[in-house]
């Protein structure tokens, strides 16, 4: 009688090769190890997604650092825009605003300027904005400071000339509003 093959024999008696399971104490050990897992669920979740967490942290830290850097820079710039320039700026600004309000009191027909020209007369025109940006970026640059002062002076001269012409055209001083007279 030929020998039964090794594989066939094992397949036929498969269950007889099995032994009872592990000692019950093994589950107790596992249960103990499972317990802290539940407590640290958030940490575990962070652990599983550590790469995402790290990426978000880097972004947040970068944002904070950049924000703080910009704040510091801004503060430094304000401090660096020298007090004398600030003082000059305040003086010229008040003078320019005063003349502009006088000019605006004239009727448009007398004024004879189109809207683009009137816009150009304003203190904060494009030239002013360019200079202001340059000054913020290069707070210590004397040439830019000088250019800013020159801008104020030219603007004031121009407004004075316009006012002179307007007074010649219409000698009667335009009526000021109560608000302006109080200023």
């Amino acid at each position: 009688m030929p020998e039964q093959s090794f594989e066939d024999f094992i397949r036929q008696h498969r269950s007889e090769f099995e032994q009872p399971g592990p000692r019950p104490a093994l589950w107790d050990k596992l249960e103990k190890e499972l317990a802290p897992k539940k407590k640290g669920k958030v940490l575990q979740m962070l652990g599983r997604n550590w790469l995402k967490v790290a990426a978000v942290l880097v972004l947040v830290v970068n944002t904070i650092v950049i924000f703080q850097f910009l704040q510091m820079k801004k503060q430094a710039q304000v401090a660096t825009v020298s007090p004398e320039l600030q003082e000059a700026g305040m003086y010229y600004t008040s003078q320019i605003e005063k003349r502009l309000s006088e000019i605006k009191a004239y009727p448009p027909a007398v004024l004879g300027l189109d809207s683009a020209a009137r816009k150009e007369l304003e203190l904060r025109n494009d030239t002013y904005k360019v200079l202001e940006t340059e000054l913020v970026q290069n707070p210590g640059n004397e040439r830019i400071k000088a250019a800013m002062v020159r801008y104020y002076q030219l603007k004031l001269d121009l407004l004075d000339k316009i006012l002179d012409e307007l007074r010649e055209k219409q000698p009667v001083k335009p009526k000021q509003s109560n608000y302006e007279s109080e200023m």
Partner: peptide
């Protein structure tokens, strides 16, 4: 969800075969 009771059920189902 981390339910220990469910883990136990899973363990009971597989521990003997896996132990072998």
């Amino acid at each position: 969800k981390g339910e220990v009771r469910a883990f136990r059920e899973l363990y009971n189902a597989y521990s003997e075969a896996m132990y072998n």
